[in-house]
Design a protein around this nucleic acid. Sequence first.
RNA 1: GGGGCCGUAGCUCAGUUUGGUUAGAGCACUCGACUGUCACUCGAGAGGUCGCGGGUUCGAGCCCCGUCGGCCCCGCCA
Length: 596
Amino acid sequence: MTDISFATSLRTHQCGALRVEHVGRTVRLGGWVHRARDLGGLVFLDLRDRAGLVQVSFDPATAGADACALAASVGAESVVDVEGVVAERPAAMRNKEMSTGDVEIRATSIRVVGPADTPAIPVARGRSEQLAAEELRLKHRHLDLRRDELQRNLMLRHRLLQRTRRFLSDAGFLEIETPVLTKPTPEGARDYLVPSRVHPGEFYALPQSPQIYKQLLMVSGFDRYFQLARCFRDEDLRADRQPEFTQIDVEASFVTQDDVIDVAEEMMRTLWQEGGSPFPAGRVRRMTYADAMERYGVDRPDLRYGLEIADVTEAFRAVEFPFTATAIAAGGRVRGIRIPGGASLSRKQLDEIDAVGKSAGVRGVLRVKSVNGVVEGAVGKALGDDAASRLGLQDGELGLFVAGEDRITNPALDRIRQDVALRLQLAPEGVNEFVWVVDFPMFERDLESGTLSAMHHPFTSPHPDDVGRLKNEPWTARALAYDLVLNGTELGGGSIRISDPTVQRSIFALLGIDEETAQSRFGFLLEGLRAGAPPHGGIAFGFDRIAMVLAGATSLRDVIAFPKTTAARALFEGAPSPVADGDLEDLHITLESVAE
RNA sequence: GGGGCCGUAGCUCAGUUUGGUUAGAGCACUCGACUGUCACUCGAGAGGUCGCGGGUUCGAGCCCCGUCGGCCCCGCCA
């Protein structure tokens, strides 16, 4: 790191940056009063800035009685201007828990330059004291952001942003900004709409992603593009979902899937290094979507632990066993996971796991224990003496099986698998298991209506081997689409795009978008593709999620300076809020009564 | 749209099971004492629309209905 001077006209050093090497220097500091200790004659203030804490001592002999009195009376979180001398602390008075704990400032003067009200929520907190309720922390965000944890998170976020820019810029990618006021897209998530004042009845939309713009930049010849793009989606929120969020948006021309994956993987490796978290050596493994669904029941498998899904349909096929018979007869399968050491799960825990399965849609979870090579109970009776081997159960293993169609059992097995891993603490600490999931299907098919929708987005190129399937069985066609998954969380995804306007039209047709609709919604893209489009593709990463993972946070709110609540409210600034009638008139908007 | 948990002093919580005198504790705050503390210590004090509205009851922080807000999850998020 380069040595930056934080000295200004009003201070010589940062509080938290003082060390033994500064001993003897006369310093002037500005900072927040973190905590005060008034011993009567002596007064100690812990002074805080973004670099950390430093102890300032006030002795009547050096600072004078007035300065001591002022130091004793200044309220927590006030900003003070202190002058003094850096002194080495006697051995017995050092504080090993402070990075500045070998020194203190012997103050000669103090001024209160920013007096503070008693803080609504505490900033300085004792070791065992609870954090204030998140509602209050969001309401008084300026105070909450003073806490060490959030300071560190936002400083990490800054470093990750800079590292991303440097990595991509060094790799020849150009940072190009795209509009925030853009065109509504009926596909995908709900748009945030912005009314136009000069065009009555017409609206802009905030972008869900810069997808079409970045493709047009490829058409324009900008080869390699990136953007730390703000995106907006008006959908219900979760701990890992905010209505506005930041994507690392990347697109490149004359590339294949492997080219995109190579760059993206190297970028992730760089960011994990910046975040100080281990990134596995060598190439990130790849798994097909079909494989992920078969072995883990999801398209974003957590590979920190085993518990792979096994198909035991054959063991039950010729057996009269009510739990499985109807499912098999209906063309379903019997699948489940085998848990080494699963015998330690209590009856109550197994009932809870059963409830997890049921809430995910299966009729129940079959529990099978192998003890001394023998499977007891109804399953043992039905399958016979070799039940354990037919189910692949090692001695002492517990099998949890469900029966039915894959589309039901996959999500159930996924949840059961995660639930068991959590109970048995199977995911090792500090381990990062990355995996590229590739060969996603082109489409999702609604079973009732038979309509197709794009799995990734409607500009995704079909897999060259599956183009022939588009005509008669498009729902079996794979796409050139890929996701990067870490420990069961999707970090980002992308695809090779369609660069041939004819292909794009045929995909629109499959999605039920007729020529006229395609023209009105995506005309500018189609026109671009007709103007000579290079083969291109890209990827987008959820930057906030990456920051969250690397900060060790459990909520996106802890890595965003001013986040929204789960109801998409901003408690600090109070948005959204009603506006004056006149403002609405200008926008040609009349409200229906919202009073009710 | 649905399910779950939560809302009592500035903050964190107890009190709600089984309705009953004046709603408690720790921290913070105010005042006082204290010259080596570092979550300083000690003494005293102040501080409450029990989220809000309605209902049941002789009586509601506690029971019922509604509502607002926060968090977690399902649906949703091309």
